[in-house]
């Protein structure tokens, strides 16, 4: 890594840190300091949880191939934050949410998240370790998709929330969800998976929106601060792109 890249990396981390801390503090002192734009998928999620509780059916959440220790570590953490919010809301249900992963490193993460969600509601006795399931992925994750389509039918899931790392195999899962009339919310960090997710989802999530679940589903100031920090970085990136384009055009002229 050259010196410029190292320098830019350190500056970006520092900017994110400052923006995050300041925005979280402002949000703590003045609730509603930052207005969040509506995201239909997160607006629909509480209703999906309610419908699952009423129907006594599980809600299905999947991280796909996201797991700890690799490039998708933070995506896995964002996905489990969503699991936490959903599990906390549905803790009163007799049927726990179904959490599926294809990366084995996500199994302990899923267990810990579910346990904490039930503990937070004081219903730890309802926590079921069997709610976290590993479906092995073949070379193209097709075996994982096949396993999921079977589980969605066998467990008669109420709705599917697929937020993580998926490729085109998401189409098999999406098609199975529609065949069984199960609502689907999906998003992926892979462009191919994201395209399929957009086509199949009732309420699609796009790109960084899959990291925003915690801020939209809780009142946590730190989560809202993270969204503000993202926006600050986004504006800086836009400015850098415009300036570099103008400089390149001027240099070329």
């Amino acid at each position: 890594m050259d010196t410029t890249t190292q320098f830019v990396g350190i500056v970006l981390i520092l900017v994110a840190l400052v923006a995050l801390v300041v925005a979280a503090q402002v949000q703590r002192r003045r609730q509603q300091a930052f207005a969040l734009r509506p995201i239909p998928a997160y607006e629909a999620l509480p209703d999906l949880v309610g419908a699952a509780i009423e129907a006594n059916r599980p809600l299905h959440l999947s991280l796909g191939s996201a797991g700890l220790g690799g490039n998708s570590t933070l995506l896995a953490l964002a996905g489990t934050e969503l699991l936490y919010q959903v599990a906390q809301r549905s803790a009163i249900s007799a049927v726990p949410p179904l959490f599926t992963v294809s990366d084995t490193t996500a199994i302990p993460l899923g267990h810990d998240t579910l346990r904490r969600a039930y503990q937070a509601r004081g219903l730890l006795e309802r926590y079921r370790p069997g709610a976290v399931r590993w479906y092995p992925a073949g070379p193209r994750s097709l075996a994982f998709a096949a396993g999921l389509t079977a589980a969605m039918g066998d467990d008669n899931v109420s709705a599917n929330l697929l937020v993580g790392s998926f490729g085109p195999e998401l189409a098999l899962i999406g098609e199975a969800a529609h065949r069984r009339d199960q609502p689907l919310i999906a998003a992926s960090d892979q462009p191919e998976g994201q395209a399929v997710a957009y086509a199949f989802s009732d309420q699609p999530l796009i790109a960084e929106e899959l990291f925003a679940g915690g801020a939209y589903l809780s009142t946590d100031a730190a989560q809202v601060g993270a969204l503000v920090a993202q926006d600050v970085l986004r504006w800086l990136l836009i400015a850098a792109l415009v300036v570099s384009a103008v400089l390149a055009a001027a240099g070329g002229g």
Binding site: L12, I13, A16, L17, L20, L74, L75, L77, A78, D189, I206, A207, E208, L210, F211, A212, A222, A226, A229, Q230, L233, R234, L237
Partner: peptide
Amino acid sequence: GIALATLVAGVR
């Protein structure tokens, strides 16, 4: 967008 969100999540 995903890269920026990942960066902020990492800092958190």
